[in-house]
């Protein structure tokens, strides 16, 4: 059976991934976007054996790093309907409601998020706001903020100011 899984993964990755290089796993709804094609999770996983073990992922999930404590796929994803996430009580939710899944462990953060103190908000301070959900900023598979390149430091004030201005302007 394991061989069968590997075979499917191999066929899938060579045929499909070769044809459509840009693979995006959408956050809004759990789908696999390959160019203009949208694939439901279950279109592959119907045939692939369930595997609860921690292992190196292959195929479409080859590039996915999972580093979220002791969590593994089925901690959040439902094993029978992969298009859904599951809560601890067994009820299923869409990925747009992923906040509920996160809040099961991160209750204190959720409380702050509800108050508008954790997380990013844009728009109006006294009106309509665009409130970003957990997975808009955090990768659920690897939640801490990844290190990033800082913008260029401010220029030294001493000495003549260079007239060649716009090298920094077109960021």
């Amino acid at each position: 059976m394991k061989l069968k899984t590997k075979l499917y993964a191999a066929i899938f990755s060579t045929l499909c991934m070769g044809l459509h290089a840009n693979t995006i796993i959408s956050n809004e709804k759990l789908t696999l976007n390959k160019g203009s094609f949208k694939l439901e999770c279950m279109s592959c996983h119907r045939t692939v054996e369930k595997n609860f073990k921690k292992r190196k992922l292959i195929g479409e999930h080859e590039k996915l790093t999972v580093n979220h404590g002791k969590m593994w796929c089925f901690s959040c994803h439902d094993e029978t309907d992969r298009n859904k996430l599951k809560l601890i009580d067994g009820s299923l939710v869409d990925s747009k409601d992923a906040v509920q899944v996160c809040a099961q462990c991160h209750g204190v953060v959720k409380r702050d998020w509800d108050a508008g103190v954790h997380g990013k908000r844009t728009g109006n301070w006294n009106g309509e706001k665009n409130i970003l959900a957990c997975i808009k900023c955090h990768d659920p598979h690897q939640p801490p903020f990844q290190p990033m390149k800082p913008f260029s430091p401010p220029r030294n004030r001493f000495g003549p100011i260079k007239k060649a201005v716009h090298n920094n302007a077109h960021h």
Partner: peptide, 29 residues
């Protein structure tokens, strides 16, 4: 009514702004 530009640019959501006289505001919390 809008948020300041620095707040909207922050990728981590570290920046919070509001009316301190409003007991319901983020800043008051």
């Amino acid at each position: 009514g809008k948020y300041p530009a620095c707040l909207e640019a922050c990728p981590t959501g570290s920046r919070k702004f509001g009316n301190i006289l409003d007991p319901e505001s983020e800043i008051n919390y």
